[in-house]
């Protein structure tokens, strides 16, 4: 019984690691896979091999992969919604299916960038002054603004494939930050 549990767990986490959308999640799933592998070795009375698997699979290779993904190119996205009082898991789950997942998928499949999202309810002018993100999604009432640079190739692609990237939202305005001067943005 325990063996079947271990084998099914191995299979499930191997599939998770392969089919996961996000690279960092894959690395963590691989770590869990190695942990179950360690348990399997222990179950079959091989503690020396189990120790080696724990040290290499969970320890060193996870850290190595995480450092490697840190050096991987990342596209920095900031999602701004000033209407939300407190940004909790519920409000993220609301936009998960129509904004976040398609955007992540598009960036990974077609652009080869690792998306990194930040959520906030601070006013957008303040965020633009303080932080430097590549791409802003700003929602205000029924309107959705996309902020980006015209020289940015990835942003151009996102605008061109808008119907794939952002679903179920009709009113979208695109604002090129480097064309719109600072004086207009301050208004």
């Amino acid at each position: 019984m325990f063996q079947i549990f271990l084998m099914v767990g191995l299979l499930v986490f191997a599939c998770f690691a392969v089919f996961s959308e996000n690279i960092k999640r894959s690395v963590i799933y691989l770590g869990i896979f190695s942990l179950i592998m360690t348990l399997t070795y222990l179950h079959y009375n091989a503690p020396d091999v189990a120790l080696a698997e724990a040290a290499i699979g969970v320890g060193i290779s996870t850290i190595m992969y995480l450092v490697a993904t840190k050096k991987f190119s990342i596209y920095d996205i900031c999602y701004v919604n000033e209407d939300v009082e407190v940004f909790n898991d519920e409000s993220i789950n609301e936009i998960m299916s129509n904004v976040v997942r398609p955007l992540e998928k598009f960036l990974e499949r077609t652009e080869g960038f690792e998306p990194q999202l930040a959520y906030t309810n601070h006013p957008i002018e303040k965020i633009m002054q303080e932080d430097n993100h590549d791409f802003y999604v700003h929602r205000k009432g029924n309107l959705t603004y996309l902020y980006g640079n015209k020289s940015d190739r990835v942003f151009q692609d996102i605008v061109a494939n808008m119907d794939k990237v952002i679903k179920d939202i009709k009113d979208i305005r695109v604002i090129y930050m480097d064309e719109v001067g600072r004086s207009e943005r301050d208004e």
Binding site: D48, I56, G59
Partner: peptide, 13 residues
């Protein structure tokens, strides 16, 4: 259980 290789990997970690 253990030995040089495993301990060395833990130190490297």
């Amino acid at each position: 259980p253990g030995g040089g290789f495993q301990g060395g990997v833990i130190l490297a970690t």
